[in-house]
Amino acid sequence: MATENADYTVTPTPYPATTKSSSTDISSISTTAKTHYFADKILITITQNGKLAHWVHVPLDISQTDGSLTSNPYLEQDDDVPSSELLPIHHLTATTILGGTVPELEVLGQTLATQIASVIVQRDEREKRMVVIGMGLEKSMSGREEFSELVGLVLGVL
């Protein structure tokens, strides 16, 4: 016997999930980025040498109780101040959910995830899906140039 719940809503979504992929060499290491757009999550993987060792998530949906994080009059953009579009949005927080045992790569992963989530929100401020990012990066990726190339690769598949 199945019971129906009037609060339950079915959201039709395309099947299979929309997927995009791109590969390039970063510091002579083959790097692949893939995105999978699900109804409730955006899954992004960034792999090198076929590994996935660190998973983080970034919630984009800020509840009404946290409205002060997004509507602070002191944080409004002043016309005389240069644009900060390339900086991560201050209220987005990346949290490690699996892996992340190498400190250099954990910081890299959380910073990369926050930057990517910020770009997603800047492209569509109505986007509320959780961003989940799986990474398998070499330690050599923690440099500024490598970070920029990683972000660029992911931007190509968003």
Rank of each mutant, 00 (worst) to 15 (best):
A6Y: 06
A6W: 05
T11V: 10
P12M: 02
T13W: 09
Y15H: 08
P16S: 08
A17G: 05
T18Y: 08
T19R: 09
S22N: 14
S22I: 01
S22Y: 12
S27I: 15
S28P: 02
I29D: 11
S30L: 14
T31P: 11
T32S: 12
K34Q: 12
T35E: 11
H36E: 06
Y37S: 10
Y37H: 13
L43Y: 13
T45S: 01
I46E: 00
I46M: 01
T47K: 00
G50W: 03
W55V: 15
V56C: 15
H57Y: 13
V58E: 01
V58R: 04
P59E: 12
P59A: 07
D61Y: 07
S63D: 13
Q64F: 14
Q64L: 12
T65H: 03
T65S: 12
T65G: 08
D66Q: 04
G67W: 03
L69E: 04
T70F: 04
T70L: 08
N72K: 04
N72G: 04
L75C: 07
E76P: 03
P82S: 04
P82N: 01
S83V: 09
E85P: 00
E85A: 10
L87T: 04
P88L: 05
H90G: 00
A94H: 13
L98C: 01
G100M: 01
T101I: 12
E104R: 12
Q110I: 02
Q110P: 00
L112Y: 06
A113G: 14
T114W: 12
T114P: 01
Q115V: 08
R123I: 07
D124Q: 03
R126T: 04
R126L: 10
K128N: 03
R129E: 06
M130K: 13
M130Q: 10
V131W: 06
V131S: 00
I133Q: 02
I133G: 00
G134H: 05
G134A: 05
K139D: 12
M141K: 03
S142M: 10
G143Y: 02
G143M: 03
G143A: 04
E145T: 07
E146T: 13
S148Q: 14
E149F: 01
L150N: 00
L150W: 00
V151K: 02
G152T: 06
V154W: 07
V157Y: 12
V157E: 08
V157L: 03
